[in-house]
Amino acid sequence: MKSHTITLSINGENRSVMVRSADTLLYVLRGKLGLTGAKPGCLNGDCGACTVNVEGWPMKSCLMLAVEADGKKVITIEGLENTPIQKAFVENFAFQCGYCTPGFIMNCHSLILKHPDADDHRIKEWLESNICRCTGYAEIESALKSVLRKK
């Protein structure tokens, strides 16, 4: 299969990487760039554990080919530093095993940036794309709302 050298803008750094046409963004992030914060959960777009931010929008990195991300701005969980939503997840006990957490945080973070005034309907519309199996979602709701309300 054909290989390509592409340049990804990851967390503010330009990274050159050789990829196969069939490689997903998730595979390249984890396997080639060592960014293991995005997790494989289903490789099918069902669970959201691999969510990153591409050009400002949340994106399931298992559903995007790496070549499609060429030249695009990608933010992964490793690119967030002391954001209010991370702090809120800690204080609200909004994780347990932590495996879905990077995906949830990236989704929440994008939502906060795009819709700082999001109502319940919009929050549900955004967050129902991720699965958390440990919490009952109440803590995630509190964490997100504690940040949204401050805006």
């Binding site: 293991t36 914060g37 490793e78």
Partner: peptide
């Protein structure tokens, strides 16, 4: 008391390592 969990920061920064993360 609701003591903040010991592994909290690792988990919210994506630095928590799982079996598939060691490469």
């Amino acid at each position: 008391k609701s003591v903040i969990r010991k592994e909290a920061l690792d988990k919210v920064t994506g630095r928590a390592k799982y079996t598939h993360d060691y490469h």
